[in-house]
Design a protein around this nucleic acid. Structure first.
Lengths: 171, 171
DNA sequence: CTCCGGTAGTTGAATGTTGAAGTATTATTC
DNA sequence: GAATAATACTTCAACATTCAACTACCGGAG
């Protein structure tokens, strides 16, 4: 990894003043909002934000049943991370895991009644924390604009993004 | 503007439709942008995003020297997290740690030449990743609006926010 | 001066996350 | 129809983070 000077073609391209200001606002949010949500969920309900999202995504599916890979996409987590989390949630009785009959590689996850009850118990305080951290300090008139601005960023991070396809694809 | 008169009965105060849309955009960003930045820094330079920010904050100080507590505030991290991180950065030779003469409880951190070199080596690709993830997909005309909307959220998470100080403690 | 509370930071155990390697099953190619 | 590749996870070891002690030091009260 040797680099000494800016390449004429791949120069560093520092952030503009406006970008810098935006980044200085976004950086603490990226650091602290997840941390605060995690702390609240762990303190009040003994689960992580990721585990909460797993339960929430499960309860969103109509039949309460999803393959691991679907869940991984829905929760924006790696399969490994999800596998660990599901293992823990299963021992707590909130999820069950069983092999699909059609394709035995597939682990189907199902939300139990206890899991749904847990989610419904945790949801109000979680929403309260999200509201306290985020929506209490955003003027409702700005919500649509914020969403418009953030959606492409979300799409880019997720990777289902046209410009992202400009990156060399793996053969 | 913000009032939480909601009685302690089952009054969850769900998110409005507009809030829900904003949250659905923000949630993957909170999950994936830090993860992507972490992955890039670790892959290309063997450091975490937090360690990068420690080095960056150190290089911002004019005399390259800061007490732990200052650094913790600047990096939005706990003292414990910072202590572990500084320990690692010190063994790599990028920081040094020494007791203050005036108050021996205080650990003063100083950025070494190697530390500065490391930061300067890592900075371009880090900025590149930030640009790729965030600023490449934001219309520059929207940057000021985004900053305006996000600044109060950042202030609330950091806690230097008057309404945040009125938080009731739950037994 | 001595005790005592508060401050600054460190340490250690427990837990969560990651990335690589491993297992089991299915699909494809020859 | 065997060999090979690809898929869908699971597991393991290394590492990061948290929370709760714990140490060291300072400032004041008596």
């Amino acid at each position: 990894m040797s680099e000494s000077k800016a390449d004429s073609t791949t120069e560093p391209r520092w952030l503009s003043a406006a970008e810098n200001q935006a980044w200085r606002a976004l950086l603490p949010i990226l650091e602290l909002v997840p941390a605060a949500i995690d702390a609240q969920l762990k303190r009040d309900h003994g689960i992580t934000r990721f585990e909460y999202n797993v339960l929430a995504m499960m309860s969103d599916s109509t039949d309460n049943t999803r393959p691991m890979t679907d869940l991984a996409v829905m929760t924006n987590g790696s399969l490994s991370r999800l596998s660990h989390a599901v293992g823990k949630l299963e021992t707590r009785g909130w999820l069950v895991r069983y092999a699909s009959g059609e394709d035995r590689r597939i682990s189907l996850i199902s939300l139990t009644e206890e899991g749904r009850a847990m989610l419904e118990k945790a949801a109000p305080s979680h929403v309260g924390e999200v509201r306290r951290l985020v929506f209490d300090v955003i003027d409702p008139a700005n919500l649509a604009a914020l969403t418009e601005i953030l959606l492409p960023v979300a799409a880019r991070s997720i990777g289902d993004d046209d410009a992202g396809a400009a990156e060399p694809s793996r053969p």
